[in-house]
Design a protein around this nucleic acid. Structure first.
Lengths: 336, 336
DNA sequence: ATACAAAATGGAACCGTTCCCATTCCGCGA
DNA sequence: TCGCGGAATGGGAACGGTTCCATTTTGTAT
């Protein structure tokens, strides 16, 4: 059993270099220029001999703030969430932060626990893709001076920016595309909207937009597969004289509905299919599924940008865009 | 500008309850039973009044160890990695750890940096899906008493368990299935094997297994799309008298090759296609793509299990299985 | 009642930093 | 030569916990 060698400390470096720990601290903090070249060399030398690295725990304790960014993700297995996380992580690294990723699996109890923990780690900021409505907890963070930014889902009574897709624009683009392609009846399928402001907004925009464009339309909430199948068949049967299309509210829905199309033997294109969120496989299911891609990297980076602006307002300009435009990727599933 | 309210400290709780901070520390540590019921009540009362939560930074500093588990992921956008991460994260939560996820994007420089940082955070353990061969750094962790477990990819000279798929078994299952389905010529496609012991092992097992089964075979390393397309066509042309199949070394390869099949107009099934790693869309590309699914949750959980065993050997039994069997999901792409 | 062990509680040092001061050093004008 | 100001450096008190050890309280057998 290899009995743990301790990591070396600032004091050991100072001793080896024959100087005070204050100077070593300055060297590794951001005050290197205050030190004479001689000292700098001595420190560099000693530090590399001892393989020294400042202890972040001690730093965090002393400074009252760590170099950690907490991120709450509602469903880490959703490719969209992963893509955003990737963007946030990249930005973190660029600015010297590390990312503490917490997956809530869409469970508000887990969300609560994770938030408690993140508080205990004194995170410098919080990126939240909420599951429930942890308003109170988030407000606590904010009142403790920890900035919060909301991803995709908005929460009332929380003083934080919301970064995400421009839902109005997205739905409009989708409807424009569908009607340009000659579809006259559109079914919008969404997951349960209660917990998610985004889902609610997209639903509302859809209803309004479809009405404006004089499209026959209906909406459907995903529940069990059987019910969904019936509802889908029913919608198609109800519009025999029209060209019908289905618009999927997010990637999960697209997956479910595509399966259903196959089970029901509905030929893609003749029956339109379009989804919000681009997925790896959308070009693989013949003749390809039309999607609205979200600029995930930009969204992730902007989220961190917001936090940085709140952490150090003087050095960082506020982000300009919080609502991002989707990119239409037209494929065969909306070509009649 | 809301001037930060400070979080309350153990001392404040102690004062409010009229007792010493030692007792409060005991209450929040794992020595609650040493306290009289009266005291426990007083503490609970005071703590909830002040909304107190122990500061993990201070804890980590004093104890020389945090309740953080570091995880290094080579490519966070790979669904397989995500699935494993999900398993690790769940297990972490169960045992009171938080997960510091670091994505290296297959870049060894990033890997190095992230490892440095994780060290600075005094992580309690490290789950590593390596990109390069950070042997020295990992050994440093181990000699500092921080246990390491390797995910999927093995690294020589590092004293750590390797958790992952039983590659021999996987390749054997694949070849058995393919030959049972009547394919006589098999092309194995892999990504660059230099950096990954798993890829090397699968390649070796494939060559050996194909030979034993008297299959015509060849291997192909993924590079540019054009080259891959040519190589694929060439392989098929070289075996006109045989039924040909392609075996994909991981999910990325499956994606690439499936695209290629479509571009080349190769009918799935007539030309066999099979992949290691199950993906969301494998049942969506008609007639479905046969895969070997990895038990990702089990792998993730086992990884953490290994760490826990090394952290507290007395309370946790050593994990029994480190190499996991895949599950064959047979679909139309291997049905002639 | 007395003695004594066990249980309950508290005091204070320490973990590795940062940062406020105080101190030392050096060059330069009077 | 002296005095002075600014730059370079160091001493030591926090930060918020944990933990060793000492002390007080309680229970129990004599």
């Amino acid at each position: 059993m290899s009995s743990a060698v301790r990591r070396s400390t600032i004091l050991e470096v100072a001793r080896l270099a024959g100087i005070s720990k204050t100077s070593v601290s300055r060297y590794f903090g951001d005050e290197r220029e205050r030190l004479s070249p001689t000292l700098q060399d001595r420190i560099a030398q000693a530090a590399s001999t001892l393989d020294y690295q400042p202890n972040q725990m001690a730093r965090g304790l002393k400074g009252g703030r760590s170099k950690l960014i907490g991120m709450l993700v509602a469903d880490i297995r959703n490719p969209f969430s992963v893509a955003i996380t990737h963007g946030v992580e990249q930005a973190c690294r660029q600015y010297g932060y590390s990312l503490l990723v917490c997956n809530t699996d869409n469970d508000s109890e887990q969300e609560r626990q994770h938030l408690d923990l993140l508080g205990a780690y004194q995170v410098a900021g919080l990126v939240v893709n909420a599951t429930g409505s942890p308003e109170a907890q988030l407000q606590t963070f904010i009142s403790h001076g920890t900035p919060v930014v909301l991803l995709d889902r908005e929460i009332s009574n929380v003083d934080a920016e919301v970064v995400g897709l421009d839902n109005q624009l997205a739905i409009d683009s989708a409807l424009d595309h569908l009607s340009a392609q000659g579809y006259q009846a559109v079914l919008y399928v969404s997951e349960a909207p209660e917990q998610s402001s985004t889902r609610q907004r997209r639903l509302a925009c859809f209803n309004e937009g479809a009405q404006q464009r004089a499209l026959s339309h209906a909406t459907l909430l995903l529940s069990s597969d059987t019910n969904t199948r019936q509802a889908l068949s029913h919608f198609l049967a109800a519009h025999p004289q029209h060209a019908c299309a289905v618009l999927c509210g997010n990637g999960n829905v697209t997956l479910t509905i595509t399966r259903l199309f196959q089970q029901l033997g509905l030929p893609l294109g003749q029956f339109g299919l379009m989804g919000i969120d681009e997925l790896d496989w959308c070009d693989l299911v013949p003749p390809g599924i039309t999607t609205l891609a979200q600029p995930t990297d930009a969204i992730g980076k902007t989220a961190l940008h917001c936090l940085r602006h709140r952490i150090t307002p003087q050095t960082t300009p506020p982000p300009t865009t919080l609502s991002f435009a989707p990119t239409l990727i037209a494929r065969g599933s909306t070509r009649r």
